[in-house]
Design a protein around this nucleic acid. Structure first.
Lengths: 339, 339
DNA sequence: ATGAAAGCGCTAACAT
DNA sequence: ATGTTAGCGCTTTCAT
């Protein structure tokens, strides 16, 4: 089988034009003729060549999805949402992992241009986001998780400052006073969550301790390990991690530390972003800001679709709220005498 | 910008052929000319049209990856491995989620034909696997996790029977005698793991209790809940779940049950497949068969590459061993008097 | 309602 | 080493 539309036309006794019309369901075809064509296609096992259609029609029906790593549960879920929506509309999805690597980002953006994609959903590193020029591209881009410079592209993001603030409010309410934050150093998101935390601490007149690190569990493990190794008086009494990967590393570090040393009064609270499955399974559960992950992906596809329908529309940023999920890891602190 | 190769040719003062040669790095071009072309491309911001190249060259440089759901950590990791390998070879990956739905499987297979993909990596449902006819397709297929009928396609699978047996050996050694297994009803893998478990139990002269269920946490939650609600004398003393999703549901059910009722002597062991992150984070940790997940994806790409290089080669099935990771969930049982 | 023919942008023969 | 040209398989005017 390497059949062309011509073969189908001959088998059905019609012109290629007619076959094309039934394939794309567009243009008038008599019902009896349509049936004849359809059964010829069936009979022969003909499959239209996607590359040829795209070349001729100029419509690739392809969406590019550029994320740092599908293994991050946040992006796993976003991917699924994007794919669900895309395939429902007959769009194909090309999935790209950049590992927060600017070179990979550049190469994938270039790939998107070569593919003449219909649109791109993109989670850029902070640097790439700053440098991003929408007008350089022939396709619309929707940023997720991390917006570009104001007005440069549609975006779906979390209300990061607010979410961080709520985490702080909760911790303060529970009696924690030496709150330390761990933030991803590659994303705009990390910065915003940092600012939200700092502002909230300032409002309470509390000291702040913050560190920007590579956004992976291992670096969180190391940094939290250092914090915990400090003297009891200076050690943080609560640790906040700005995404699921960092939270995981932080949890591991605390777990290891507890196994070695701590008594319950020495305990340190833990909270962070992303309601990943494990946070609800461990005991005590970890308090988190749950992001509406699937919604983020779904909304990104909607913004993209609307932008495609009306390219002149001014750019929009959709800000979604996080949900504070309170679990045992931030239980009320028994304040030591003197605090 | 909608530039064609002709524009580059004119700008560089050469023929389109020459431009094509430098684009695909194939055919002789004088170095000074190559530089001239390259800078013209750079200058103009030209991007070759992927669809046109594919149509003309007949080489799509595209791999299809068909899995049930990327949100399953097993497939998340496999995807990542496939993409790493693919992009290293300049191949694009189209990712498809079938949700174990035969209709979606059929539609994606059809899509793969239309895309004229170079090859497919495919994790079929049991039924689709049985029905699969490699000769119907123009591209090679490598099955992962679940092989088709013997010899129908290359495959990378786990040594499921052996892994199940090792799980049983371990449980028996630890003093468990009423072992119940929960298996996915959609995959060949579920059947093999079931057989491995049954054989091993038979060798020990132990009774067997097994259930085939929809491969998602919720159905596991329900079924395990029913088991646990039974009388202490008949209730399983160990539960085995045949994949990460079922294991998760089983864990939740046991957790809920413990919170309500149990004392430590009533405890039930838990073990299963897939070393997903949470199994090591909960306390006690869950004993699992760790699959070499990344390796599975990587090897699948290698089989595919080799098959592409030599289509006449007879089909191969690569069987990888699982690794038994022992954790607290299967600690030695304190045998009740009379057992 | 149907068909003939041009051409999407590129690569691969085949010249030179 | 470089250029000319045909044509990959389809959709889309434009006729009829």
């Amino acid at each position: 089988m390497n059949l062309r539309i011509k073969d189908v036309a001959e088998a059905a006794g019609v012109s290629v034009t007619t076959v094309s019309r039934v394939l794309s369901n567009n243009g008038p075809v008599r019902d009896t003729v349509r049936q004849r064509v359809l059964s010829a296609i069936e009979q022969l096992g003909y499959r239209p060549n996607a590359a040829a259609r795209r070349l001729r029609s100029g419509d690739t029906a392809t969406i590019g999805l550029i994320v740092s790593d599908v293994r991050n549960p946040f992006f796993t879920e976003v991917s699924r949402a994007v794919e669900d929506a895309a395939y429902q509309q007959g769009l194909r999805v090309i999935l790209c992992n950049t590992d927060e690597n600017p070179e990979k980002e550049a190469m994938y953006l270039r790939l998107m241009e070569e593919e003449r994609v219909t649109g791109v959903i993109y989670s850029p590193t902070h640097d790439a986001a700053q440098r991003f020029k929408a007008q350089h591209y022939d396709f619309p881009v929707v940023m997720i998780d991390r917006p570009g410079p104001a007005g440069s592209a549609d975006a779906v993001v979390l209300d990061n400052r607010d979410a961080s603030a709520r985490l702080v409010e909760h911790l303060v309410e529970q009696g924690y006073r030496r709150i330390a934050g761990l933030f991803g150093n590659a994303s705009t998101t990390g910065r915003e969550r940092h600012e939200g935390l700092m502002d909230a601490l300032r409002r309470h007149g509390l000291p702040a301790q913050a560190e920007f690190v590579d956004p992976n569990p291992d670096s969180a493990f190391v940094h939290v390990g250092v914090w915990l190794a400090g003297e009891r008086e200076t050690r943080p009494d609560a640790i906040v991690a700005s995404n699921g990967l960092l939270l995981l590393g932080a949890y591991r570090a605390m777990h290891a530390w507890r196994a070695r040393s701590a008594t319950s009064t020495d305990d340190v609270a833990l909270a962070g972003f992303d309601n990943d499955a494990w946070t609800d399974l461990v005991s005590p559960g970890v308090t988190v800001i749950a992001q509406p992950v699937y919604e983020i992906g779904k909304n990104a596809m909607q913004l993209l679709t609307q932008r495609l329908a009306d390219p002149s529309m001014s750019t929009r940023t959709l800000v979604l709220p996080g949900e504070l999920v309170i679990r045992g890891s931030t239980e009320r602190r028994v304040l030591p005498v003197g605090d």
